[in-house]
Amino acid sequence: MIRTEVSGAVGRVILARPEKRNALTPAMLAGIVAAVAELEKTCGAIVLRGEGEVFCAGFDLTLCREDKGVMGELLTGLSRVVRALRRCTAPVVAAAHGAAIAGGCAMLGGCDVVVTDAAAKLGYPVVRLGISPAVSAPTLRLLTGDGPARERMLDPGLIDGRRAAAIGLAHECAETAAAAIERAEAIAADLAAKPRGGMAATKRWLNELDGTDRDEIMDAALAASMALVGSDEERTRLAQLWAKQDRKQ
């Protein structure tokens, strides 16, 4: 469900589960980490995008219904993805087309450049389910500053692409989802053409300056999300979600 492609100096990591809006499984998260490690050996830049209409709708929570341990695996896997994207020597450009929700939005924090589109939906509705998006707080606040980060992590509502660009969650907002992917590809091609030694040194230095090279910051954020896994609140709210989904069927 994770596909990679290489064209010229640009590598692509594609979330390829369009029938589920690219909802993330533990295997997909591990797949992203592996794909990035493979592509950075040869590529000058990497594009992260989704197949189909949306970038990523977040975790596949239906998995948590059968196996209570999956939530912890998803959160740990997400934290590993953010670190892998950040520490990969090549710059990573995300195309947050259509939707980047919860875990999907969190992945953007690991990327160096984020492009979205005007109608895209972004944000963290998971507090409604008794789940904390704390795992992505360290990188979100770097993108938006502390004020908007607080708003986005505590408010379960979603924002559109234009608002995301205005607060810094995205660097650019294209008119359409297709244009967002095109623009991400163009930026990646431009970055990939630059001398790689200076690029890698600059990215490493920016990680050092903003603290994303330090595991203790990322570990503490993960621990804050993990602390709620299996809580009464989470179980009750997820049970309500399953009941609602069953009624729909």
Binding site: D112, L143, T144, I187, D190, M199, L206, D210
Partner: peptide, 17 residues
């Protein structure tokens, strides 16, 4: 630059050249 425009925007500017 990070102090001036924030870490996220600085990253885009410096890596983009």
């Amino acid at each position: 630059l990070v102090r001036k425009v924030g870490a996220g925007r600085a990253r885009r500017i410096l890596l983009g050249g």
